[in-house]
């Protein structure tokens, strides 16, 4: 009965957050110590700068500028990189950069889940044993080591000293799957180590709690094997916690990816952000940062909805209220 109202309220909240986030980013860019165009295009003739100002709406005050930018942003026009000789659209840069970053993060999440799920389940199942303590101790240490440290050391040992894989650059899938993955191994490994540690620790404590549930004893009394109970009865309810955690860790992963792209010379979104920053392209920078934030918010919404599908408990809670 109230489902529609609930939905409308949630969408309203989402729109408000998206609006405020873009406003925040636009506001940040106004903290520059001088006029944006003066900083972006130093040494250019004043008439040229004036044209750019009008084009961007910077002459219309903060809100005038913001709404013009926002309208374009929603339409998919993210502005341009300006140079002395001309300009390149941010969208054209993103066309190259976005797939690289998305693949990098996707692979990292897949690897992290693929390793942490069996590890978390088995260490919870053997809680208190030597195996469990060894896993927990190792993971605690690795959860604290920043991804760039792991990246640099991997690049040194595996890439340079052993020469097993290519340490630098990006090769698209179309130029050969083997080469593609060879270049991705180190960046993905660097990013997933921290995630593995976080997910495994979380899953372990969650599973230990679930193992004490009545329905686990009930499942055992049917004569099922421990393995089946662990996967079918214990992992399912714990997987929702894992999904929520994957969403929470996305922010850290995005930050980590910015550094890792830089270390391994992958020209993804993080690379573009650093490029915009280095070349003082504040309009492009604003769009890029807003894009990251909007993407992050939307990802969280998707996970939230998905976990509702997986877990009937949250579905009911929402449906009933």
């Amino acid at each position: 009965m109230n489902k529609l109202g609930e939905l409308a309220k949630r969408i309203g909240q989402l729109v408000l957050v998206l609006f405020l986030v873009t406003l925040l980013v636009a506001f940040l860019m106004r903290l520059l110590p001088a006029d944006t165009v003066d900083i972006m295009l130093p040494g250019q003739p004043e008439e040229f700068k004036e044209v750019i100002r009008q084009e961007l709406g910077l002459d219309k005050g903060f809100f005038g500028y913001y709404f013009q930018w926002l309208t374009n942003f929603v339409k998919g026009d993210f502005g341009s990189f300006y140079f002395a000789g001309g300009s390149e659209t941010v969208a054209s840069h993103l066309g190259n950069a976005l797939p690289k970053s998305l693949l990098l993060m996707l692979y990292s999440q897949i690897v992290a889940l693929a390793v942490s799920i069996p590890l978390g389940l088995s260490s919870a199942y053997r809680a208190g044993t030597k195996f469990d303590r060894a896993v927990s101790g190792t993971l605690f240490t690795f959860s604290s080591v920043p991804s760039f440290a792991i990246g640099l050391i991997l690049a040194l040992v595996v890439g340079v000293k052993l020469g097993w894989v290519e340490p630098l650059g990006y090769v698209p899938m179309s130029e050969g799957l083997v080469e593609h993955f060879k270049h991705m191994v180190l960046p993905v490994a660097s990013l997933s180590v921290g995630l593995i540690a976080a997910y495994t620790r979380l899953l372990r404590s969650d599973v230990i709690a679930t193992l004490k549930e009545d329905y686990v004893t009930m499942a055992a009394s049917k004569g099922l094997s421990d393995r089946r109970i662990l996967w079918r009865h214990v992992f399912r309810p714990s997987s929702i916690t894992l999904m929520t955690s994957a969403a929470l860790n996305m922010g850290g992963l995005i930050g980590g990816a910015v550094v890792i792209e830089n270390i391994f010379s992958i020209q993804g979104v993080g690379f573009e952000i650093i490029y915009a920053l280095g070349t003082r392209q504040y309009v492009a920078l604003q769009s890029l940062i807003a894009l990251v934030a909007v993407g992050y918010v939307l990802f969280n919404v998707v996970v939230d909805i998905a976990s509702g599908f997986v877990d009937p408990r949250t579905r009911e809670r929402r449906g009933l209220r």
Binding site: D214, A220, S221, G223, S225, H233, R236
Partner: peptide
Amino acid sequence: VRDTWGTGMAMIFQDPMTALNPVR
């Protein structure tokens, strides 16, 4: 022993709220 569970011996638990898996 597990081979006798379900087919030889079975158990009904006290609290039907907690003894059924809520997500299956």
